[in-house]
């Protein structure tokens, strides 16, 4: 327990000092929120909609922080520590792989939640955003999406043979997901064909869930995506811990 708290504190400080997770995970989503707020914020989402464009996009903006921390921050830190042989030093201490991965998981979770709180504050204070749906439902969906993205990030960190591959894999998954899932480019403005393609991305499903809960619109067939996300998360984390390498 002492190891967990001390390492967590240290790694959190290092992450803040490192700046990149802070910029891509926390500042960037705020910028997206501000731009969206200025450009289309108070307009209705579509002709005759009873919610604004901002309300419709809020879930998607919140997901940017999850992706930046889970698909960049988390796997790249682990790959970097392996590359620099920092994990090799931990190898000859009593620390367990699960603890090493768990600490990076929690550090990035904290960054992601910080990002969410800031985005919420920006949207509420400057653009009159109000969550019309259930906050608890939204929080549950948020954690579910986070779990699925982070477990993917952990698996990437474990299976990448070196930092170059880790970088490449993260970019290959992160950028298409960020653009086509509706996190930055609103799903609603995409052509029908692209929407269908985007539906395969797990994040698209996640964002639909976030949108639905934040708007309070009825969710259809919610059970199936939830079961799939949880099952995938369990498998990915299992693979991550099993294939974890110190060097």
């Amino acid at each position: 327990m002492r190891a967990l708290i001390t390492l967590l504190k240290t790694e959190l400080k290092l992450t803040v000092r490192g700046m990149d997770t802070l910029i891509f995970g926390v500042v960037f989503p705020c910028i997206v929120a501000i731009i969206l707020g200025i450009v289309v914020g108070s307009r209705p989402a579509f002709e005759g909609a009873d919610y604004t464009f901002m309300q419709q996009s809020f879930g998607a903006i919140a997901a940017i922080g999850i992706c930046a921390t889970g698909l960049m921050g988390l796997p790249l830190t682990v790959a970097d520590y392996r590359h620099k042989k920092i994990l090799k030093r931990f190898r000859v201490t009593p620390v367990s792989p699960a603890l090493m991965l768990g600490i990076q998981f929690i550090v990035n979770l904290i960054m992601s939640v910080a990002s969410f709180v800031l985005v919420l504050a920006v949207c509420m204070l400057f653009f009159g955003y109000r969550m019309t749906g259930s906050f608890v439902g939204f929080a549950m969906s948020y954690l579910l999406v986070l779990l699925s993205i982070y477990s993917m990030g952990l698996m990437l960190a474990s299976i990448s043979p070196n930092i170059k591959t880790a970088n490449l894999l993260c970019c290959l998954i992160y950028f298409p997901m960020l653009i086509f899932s509706g996190a930055t480019l609103p799903y609603e403005v995409m052509p029908k064909g692209l929407q269908r393609a985007a539906n395969i991305l797990p994040l698209t499903q996640g964002i639909k869930l976030l949108k639905g809960t934040s708007l309070g619109t009825p969710l259809e067939n919610i059970l199936m995506p939830v079961v799939i996300i949880v099952a995938l998360a369990i498998i990915s984390i299992g693979v991550a811990v099993k294939t974890f390498r110190w060097e």
Binding site: A3, L7, T10, K13, L14, R17, G18, T93, V95
Partner: peptide, 16 residues
């Protein structure tokens, strides 16, 4: 780790 201080690395190692 990048940007870690002497006291931090000692404390972190100590905690293990």
């Amino acid at each position: 780790q990048d940007r870690i201080t002497v006291a931090e690395i000692c404390e972190a190692t100590h905690s293990l």
